[in-house]
């Protein structure tokens, strides 16, 4: 059953790719393909629940969509018009760029402050406090780099990117907690116990996102 679903999903994907064959890439095309695929799959599922065979459900669903050539033409124009695309993506690209820079600076600020305080010979607890900036910086950096459209990849959707940021943030926070508690309490088991939850949540979320992701590579 699961294998069946997989082949149907592939067929839907192939059909949509074929539909927009030779159309120049754009973020709008990428989005439209995903929108069409999601809705088409749901329609096929409805047909199948009414007792249709997989293949027939796919055929019927595709036919009932109607003539998509107008939409294909729209996309072709967009793909050709590079200037328009640039306008579409610059605003979000600028925001992502600012986020990346802020993320890196925040991380650096955290690292330098920790190093500085550590060498001033403050107590470890005080010295590692600003490490929280590294956590925030890492999360911001992750979010920004994933939502940026590059020459090779399309932007990730915001919810997904935010989840990645949460995973990285949680992981870093786990390490941060381990460092602070480990250095202040002298008992290693305390630091392991306190960081375990955050590290596990971070790794779990990260793995889930990695394994469920869609391909954002630009093919053309």
């Amino acid at each position: 059953m699961l294998k069946n679903k997989k082949t149907i999903d592939d067929k839907v994907k192939n059909h949509i790719e074929h539909l927009f064959d030779g159309v120049g890439a754009s973020q709008q095309l990428f989005d439209l393909k995903e929108e069409l695929a999601t809705n088409l799959k749901e329609k096929i599922a409805d047909y199948r629940s009414k007792g249709m065979e997989d293949e027939q459900a796919l055929q019927e669903a595709v036919i009932s969509m109607g003539d998509l050539s107008g939409l294909v033409d729209d996309m072709r124009k967009l793909g050709r018009d590079k200037a328009k695309q640039a306008v579409y993506s610059t605003k979000t690209a600028r925001i992502s760029l600012a986020g990346i820079i802020a993320g890196v600076l925040l991380t650096l600020f955290g690292s330098f402050t920790v190093a500085m305080l550590y060498f001033i010979n403050l107590s470890a607890e005080e010295a590692f406090g600003p490490g929280i900036f590294i956590v925030a910086g890492g999360a911001l950096f992750t979010y920004s780099i994933l939502t940026m459209e590059t020459g090779k990849k399309y932007a990730m959707n915001k919810i997904r990117a935010a989840s990645y940021a949460l995973a990285v943030g949680s992981l870093l926070f786990g390490i941060f907690v381990a460092a602070v508690t480990g250095l202040t309490s002298d008992e290693i088991y305390v630091s392991i116990a306190s960081s375990m939850l955050f590290v596990m949540a971070g790794v779990g979320l990260f793995l889930f996102l990695c394994l469920t992701g869609t391909d954002r590579l630009k093919t053309k």
Partner: peptide, 9 residues
């Protein structure tokens, strides 16, 4: 959010 078939717009 993501559903089984992908994201809905």
């Amino acid at each position: 959010d993501e559903t089984q078939g992908g994201r809905r717009k």
